[in-house]
Amino acid sequence: MKTAIEIENLAHNYGLVKALKPLNMSIESGTLFGFIGPDGAGKTTLFRILTSLLLPTQGKAKVLGLDVVNDFRKLRPLLGYMPGRFSLYQDLTVEENLNFFAKLFKTSIEENYHLIKDIYDQIAPFKNRLAGKLSGGMKQKLALSCALIHKPDLLFLDEPTTGVDVVSRAEFWEMLRKLKNHGITIVVSTPYMDEAALCDKVALIQKGKILQTDSPQNIMENFSKPLFSVKSINRNSLSKDIETFGKTDSFYWFGDSIHWIGSDDKDADLLRIYLQQKKHEDLEIEKINASIEDCFMDLMKGNHE
């Protein structure tokens, strides 16, 4: 399999702030790759270096076989890039924006229409509306259409789903899966942990450091600590009581239940007895598989400096 991105000892500092700590990794072409991490983890910095917009402080990166520093002229036309904030011309209409970006890349809407058809069809009824007046979900679709109009070999999407509702987010990922089938390598970043499962491969990133890189399935399966879901009708006192239970590695709320990690499986039985003594009725404790968020939080704890 061909390599789309090759990163060697890459790092970036803003003054004294280490935005990106030395990093080695590669991304295979044809994959849907996700950088998963909170704001300020270094995702945008990494994307800007890989799109040749920012010079790295140290290290090397090759994108599509081209060096991001020296070969940036050859590289740029091959990339599609959708920056984190909405960066289209708000005072141009939907169609004018798309036309502009097509001309910018010396192509036409017709030439690559097959690529954007699914996406653009949804906003086509509003093609004469100013881009600034579109709703969030539609802006996002227009931005994606504009980034795709020149049929890039590699697409960088920086937090395309941030601040977008669940429904639009689901639709957006659906579109990305279809695009992948056109043979485009897609690199996407997101702060939403649940979206990791939709990628072929992910890198969990925090405080400028990659915590782990693998397929989401492998990451979840390799979580070795005993993880239990704890549910009780008496929600308010549940976390307080778990706090006073001695043998706890960590516990976090996940919606209506607490994800509890002990040192081994037997601790869970002790926890059950302890909580029953504390008069928790309808207590449900069951062993569960880790989600990406469980893994991320566990890795985060080891990344304090």
């Binding site: 941030t162 601040g163 976090y252 709320w253 991320f296 985060m300």
Partner: peptide, 15 residues
């Protein structure tokens, strides 16, 4: 949207 983009641990501390 007070926790948008915040890491998962801090998000829970916020709650």
């Amino acid at each position: 949207e007070p926790t948008s983009g915040v890491d998962p641990i801090t998000r829970r501390q916020f709650w």
